[in-house]
């Protein structure tokens, strides 16, 4: 029972990170109808920037800000320089270009920082607090929850309460009509990519100190898991992405907790296939969860 409780809290904590990462995927899917397969590599790149700033200034918070800022810039850059020019002649074009970007980013990171693991310090204690003899949630877990919750709320406010959020939603749903109404759809696309990459950068900064370490390939598996979370929630639904992330985090926590860490990829594939073959639209496809 104690173990179950531990695994549940741990699963929710990593699930929160998956949720943020899945949210980043959903943001781009809604804006551009494509899955950004370079999301993981981009997040790692920004995490390197973040930890370089941490090393230079000694402040985790400055590093976090730098990573998120780098995410904004990288996302905008990738959209303006690459994705905008992917032709629609080959429907696989955007996936392949994104994968080329993965190879490029990982190689460049390897050249600049080296291919070995670098330790990445967490800003809070990652060991669980012991309350009444039961090891429960760690301060770092609490920070993860708080950070992801803040991001989710801010995004929800941005999309529902601000003019730019309205513009972004309109251009995603009806680009031509939006242009006729004076919305610069191309710019909204750039903003969407920037936002998504910034959220991805935050997720990267949150997940890397939890045992992954800083490495060009640190997010490979995380990307696959987050993709699964996004698919579980339905690629179109931000609310679904959050719930999907938490759900996948929980399931993987139980699976790896009881069956061993090597089973993670198997569980991910099984989960992904099960959802896609049984409910291709995601678990929440029946619900109108498009408002956020």
């Amino acid at each position: 029972m104690e173990r179950f409780l531990f695994l549940t809290l741990d699963g929710l904590s990593t699930g929160a990170v998956y949720a943020a990462f899945a949210l980043a995927l959903v943001l781009i899917w809604r804006a551009a109808r494509l899955v950004n397969f370079a999301q993981g590599a981009m997040a790692v790149a920004t995490a390197y920037v973040g930890y370089a700033v941490v090393a230079a200034t000694g402040s985790y918070w400055l590093g976090l800000a730098a990573a998120v800022l780098a995410g904004l810039l990288l996302g905008a850059l990738v959209e303006r320089v690459l994705m905008r020019f992917v032709g629609h002649a080959n429907p696989l074009g955007d996936v392949i270009v994104a994968l080329g970007l993965v190879l490029l980013i990982q190689a460049v990171l390897g050249m600049v920082f080296g291919n070995e693991y670098r330790p990445a310090a967490a800003p809070f204690d990652t060991d669980g607090l012991t309350v009444g003899g039961i090891t429960a949630i760690s301060p770092y877990d609490l920070w993860v929850f708080a950070a992801v919750a803040v991001v989710v709320v801010l995004l929800a406010l941005l999309f529902t309460r601000t003019p730019i959020g309205l513009r972004m939603r309109a251009s995603a749903f009806a680009p031509e009509v939006s242009r006729l109404l004076g919305v610069d759809v191309n710019r909204m696309l750039t903003v969407g990519w920037a936002l998504a990459a910034a959220v991805g950068a935050l997720a990267g900064m949150l997940v890397i100190p939890t045992g992954l370490g800083l490495h060009p390939h640190a997010m490979d598996l995380v990307f696959v898991i987050a993709f699964t979370a996004a698919v579980v929630g339905g690629l179109d639904s931000p609310v679904g992405a959050v719930i999907g992330g938490l759900l996948v985090g929980l399931i993987l926590s139980y699976v790896t907790g009881y069956l061993g860490p090597d089973t993670t990829p198997l569980a991910v594939l099984a989960l992904l296939l099960a959802v896609l073959l049984v409910r291709p639209g995601g678990l929440f496809s029946g619900v109108r969860a498009r408002q956020v």
Binding site: L34, V95, V224, F227, T228, V231, L276
Partner: peptide, 12 residues
């Protein structure tokens, strides 16, 4: 993208 994602999971 769904097929790409599933096969990527296979690769892991």
């Amino acid at each position: 993208p769904y097929l790409a994602g599933v096969t990527l999971a296979v690769a892991t």
